[in-house]
Simulated assay, not measured.
Amino acid sequence: MLRQRSEGRDAANRARIDEESHQAFIQQFKDKIGQDGRWWLPALNEADPNGVACWTNLEQFVFVPTGNTPPSGITLEQLAQIARAALTVPEPTIKLSPDAKSFVNLPTWVWLEGVGQPRRTVTAELPGVMSVTLVATLKSIEIDPGTTPDRAEVTETGCGAVGKPYTRGGAFSCGVRYMRASIDQPREKYTLTVTTVWPVDIQSQGGAVPFQFDPVQLEATRDVPVGEIQSNVTPPAN
């Protein structure tokens, strides 16, 4: 820090304008030579209209012994919030079987595509001081058929993390069985919603984060027209 503040064009200009003030300014850095610690400087969010005013009221150079942070410095909890704000998960695509249209009492298989890696991580850190890594792992999905239980029966016993793709002759264990046609619904369709659930694990260095984040949840929707198969029974001819 002494080298940064006593060399270069800016330092030379300050010394030329007022050598005595310049020497008094860099004395604070000379006093800390050989001590184990770090210099902290204020930072600001330039998008915040109050950022500059806040920054000018903060002490510009704070020396803190190794392993500590200044009273107004960022905390481990704040670092975790920064990481959480940067944590995103992919928006999936809902796949169905049957695909274009389902029918009353016919199992409609549900699964997801486009999820990619089911584990997402973000790290926020102050190098050498503290860090927080958030790990979001896709654990399950939740299916909303877009109607009431008397009109649709949801099965989620075999969904796992991304649902269950249709297999010929396979057991139906993830999807919806509609029991009423959608002819009386808006646009004559049900709107099915699948929510991916990503629990978040916190890994930290420099202390423990005293809270836990709620799981990250992301919804995807799909229109499902449901028809009704009609059959006529005629008596045999005499």
Rank of each mutant, 00 (worst) to 15 (best):
P70M: 05
A208S: 11
A237M: 13
P145W: 03
F29P: 06
F213T: 02
R16T: 05
F25T: 01
C54N: 13
V64H: 07
N68Y: 08
I33T: 06
P165I: 03
E19K: 15
L44H: 08
L106Y: 00
T93C: 09
L218S: 07
R180D: 14
S204W: 07
Q60C: 00
S6W: 08
D184S: 13
L44R: 11
I141R: 11
T69A: 09
T157S: 10
D18I: 11
G34S: 08
G227S: 08
Q78S: 07
A220L: 02
E228R: 14
I202T: 12
A53D: 09
A12T: 08
D18A: 13
T155P: 03
T147F: 02
A181P: 06
R187D: 15
T66Y: 07
V132Y: 02
L112V: 02
G175A: 01
V89T: 09
T133E: 04
K32S: 12
K30A: 09
V197Q: 04
L96I: 07
E153W: 03
A237V: 14
D18M: 13
R14N: 05
T147Y: 04
D184F: 10
P199C: 00
P210V: 09
K32R: 15
A237N: 10
N232E: 15
P127F: 01
R168D: 05
Q81S: 10
L138N: 02
A86N: 09
I229E: 14
T108C: 08
D18K: 11
G207W: 10
A181S: 15
D36G: 01
L2D: 04
V233H: 06
G8C: 15
L58I: 11
G128K: 06
P70R: 00
S6Y: 07
Y190C: 05
Q205E: 07
D214Y: 05
E91L: 12
K32C: 03
P236Q: 14
V132F: 02
W40K: 10
I202G: 04
G51D: 09
G116P: 06
D10S: 15
L44D: 04
F103S: 12
I143T: 04
Q78P: 00
L2E: 07
G227K: 04
T155F: 08
P42L: 14
T195C: 00
D223G: 09
T108F: 14
V224I: 12
Q35T: 14
L192D: 01
P49V: 12
N50S: 05
P199M: 01
F29D: 05
I143K: 08
A86E: 03
L138R: 01
F29C: 03
E113D: 13
L112N: 03
P107K: 05
G67Y: 08
P65I: 08
L218C: 10
W109K: 13
E46V: 13
V216Y: 00
I143L: 07
R168N: 10
Y178L: 12
C54M: 06
F213S: 04
P70S: 11
T56W: 10
Y178G: 00
V216P: 03
C174A: 13
N57H: 14
V52F: 07
K189L: 13
P215F: 00
W109R: 15
V194N: 04
D18C: 14
S204N: 00
P235A: 05
